[in-house]
Amino acid sequence: MIYHKTPRRVLGIETSCDDTGVAIYDDAEGLLGHVLYSQIKTHQEYGGVVPELAARDHIRKVIPLVDAVLKQTGCDPSSINAVAYTCGPGLAGALLAGSAVAKGLAYAWNVPTIGVHHMEGHLLAPMLEERVPAFPFVALLVSGGHTLLAHVKGIGEYRILGQTLDDAVGEAFDKTAKLLGLGYPGGPAIARVAETGDGTRFSFPRPMVDRPGMDFSYSGLKTAALQATQKNDLDAQTVADIACAFQAAAVETLVIKCERALKHTGTDRLVVAGGVGANLHLRDQLQQTTQRRNAEVFFPRLEFCTDNGAMIALAGCKRLHQAQTEFSFEVKPRWSLEDLPPV
């Protein structure tokens, strides 16, 4: 059943992977508050996310975080008009944990729920800032599970221009960091040691830039990094040099494809979102590229690059007209952006 009341204030819950985020967004006042719990310490010893542990941690943390954000914002549950939650894509168990809590709260508070697409949340995250991109724009969504370029004409009007054919760029960072003994998560670890690396010592491929199109591939780059670790003693300087070369190759590939997408679509605005969007080298290179093209680039603040409840609350607020009072726990571990209806 569709909910016809016009709500204003949305509680957002994010549990797609290994971060538990809760936030409250008001369509008139903006973001009122957000809290986040990271499971990094839980998964570090395994070198990556363990789905069952992630789901259990979400179950333990969501309700305390809801209480915390209500206290932080001074909001009473009676002022919440809808509960948004990440419906997909993501880890099935983690998604179900968030869905169950969202449905339970909505039932108790007598409000509807809104199932949000995780990547749409990332795509809209720059709209949490004062400087908001106008439509249309090209979006680069880069994270541990996703690497894609989309042409965005409006909310829900998405056309995929290119995506990874194998590893996501964030996954390649994580796996390369593991090869170098840098731990998890790999992106920040590689970026940190790359600062002291010699970028000329190793030459890694820029996958698929020698052919037309905007698809990505990172398995070959990961293999090149593996071969470098096998052929060299991994002293501190060598680790830094490999990290520097890997980061340079990964970032340059993204930049080249972004430039192609801007030219292909004829747009002069680029939005970058997802955890890898926090990489400062990537930000610097895209700033230079867009400046050279007389284009603009938009990033969310660093805390909103990784998974968070604020982007889910915002996306839910944009889709209030789709709020429902149906309380099944359906989630969508696989879900294309192109399947979303326009707003």
Rank of each mutant, 00 (worst) to 15 (best):
M214H: 07
T265E: 14
T267I: 04
A278S: 15
A172E: 00
T253Y: 02
D166H: 05
S217A: 12
V169G: 03
L221R: 06
Y218V: 05
D241Y: 06
A172V: 06
H281I: 09
G183D: 11
K178N: 14
A189L: 08
A172C: 11
D198V: 04
L282V: 03
T196V: 14
I242Y: 01
E252I: 07
T176A: 12
V251F: 05
L165Y: 10
A278M: 10
Q227F: 14
R211F: 06
V239W: 01
V271R: 03
E252T: 11
G186M: 06
G154S: 13
V271P: 00
K178H: 12
F173D: 04
G186R: 07
A273N: 05
N279A: 07
N279L: 04
F202R: 05
V251I: 08
L262A: 02
H281N: 13
G170E: 00
H264S: 15
K222V: 06
G213D: 02
D167H: 04
D215S: 13
D215A: 13
V255L: 01
G277Y: 04
Q237L: 07
D268M: 10
V297S: 04
N232E: 10
R211W: 02
D233E: 15
R201V: 06
L254C: 09
R293W: 13
A261V: 01
V276H: 05
L280E: 15
V271E: 03
V251G: 01
Q291I: 04
R159V: 12
A278Q: 09
V255K: 00
G199T: 12
F246C: 12
D241F: 05
N279S: 10
L165W: 09
C258P: 00
R293D: 04
E195W: 11
I242F: 06
A261M: 00
S219D: 02
L179M: 15
T253Q: 00
Q291L: 13
R211S: 14
G154P: 00
D198T: 06
S217G: 09
L234C: 07
Q285D: 04
G266P: 00
A250D: 01
G213L: 09
R293Y: 11
L161N: 01
R206I: 08
F298H: 04
P185N: 15
A243H: 06
A243L: 10
T267Y: 10
T200A: 13
N294V: 12
R192P: 03
L282D: 03
A278N: 10
L165M: 15
F202C: 08
A191P: 10
F216S: 06
L182H: 08
A248F: 11
A243P: 05
G186E: 01
T164E: 07
E259L: 08
D210L: 12
N294Y: 14
L280T: 15
L226Q: 07
Q247W: 06
R293S: 10
K175I: 05
A240P: 03
R201D: 03
V193I: 15
